[in-house]
Amino acid sequence: MRYLRLLGTFIRAAIQNESAYRLNAVMRLLSTGLSLAGGIGGIAVLFQATDNLNGWSKAETLAVLGVYMLVLAVNGLVISPSLHKLGGMGGEIETGNFDYTLLKPLSKQYYISVREWSVWPLLDIAVSLGVIGFAVSQMEASLTAAVLGMFLVSLVIALGLLYSLMLLLSSVAFWYRGTYVLWIMGDVLQTGKYPVSIYPRPVKLVLTWVFPVGFIVSTPAEVLMQRAEPVTLAAGFLLMLVLFAAASLLFNRSLRKYAGASS
């Protein structure tokens, strides 16, 4: 209960912080609009030239883009800001402010995972849902409650995978200060804009098992198309459990490594 109340406090602080810069807000709207136009425009140009990309139609590729935007937005809402505050550039591990965080009387992993919120991704979430809805309406298969349920399950798996990876990479910051491995994640995720199966085989294997962008973006989209096999979902779930356990273990082990930053 107390943990939920804290969540409300974190979110309120984020809103107050953001409302101070109004011109920035207008620009953020513009930025969201532009990246939407860019994503859809990119697909439109691509499918002008061909109507089938390694077995993916235009509507299906659009669904992948929608899921990509949705996952990215949730990541930007809380996971990424919180973890960047820990292990990013000028983060607490680097400045030594982590001393104070350690003193807080609550679960460390919970606190560092949810303390920092960003307001604007809420808009991105709405936009991405619109893209997904539009893509689904363009597909032949109709949406049933069962498919929708499966989609939600696959999204939970996707976000669990993403969080675990991000936590894993931020824990590395305890051991190698000044290497911002968290940034890699944002770059690797970009590959999810397109279905992973259109990439050459070696790239595809890496994107399925090393950085599971396939499970994070392509699988939920495949569920919507009713093309996903239950085995894939199960494999994703298993991978999530393993990664989550590994990440939690590494984080808690890394806490012992922390020795402050000042002299």
């Binding site: 920035n24 807000a25 532009l34």
Partner: peptide, 15 residues
Amino acid sequence: QSNALLQVNDTLVFL
């Protein structure tokens, strides 16, 4: 703050 404007600029370059 001109962060968001810089981001818009980067997106335009990208597109």
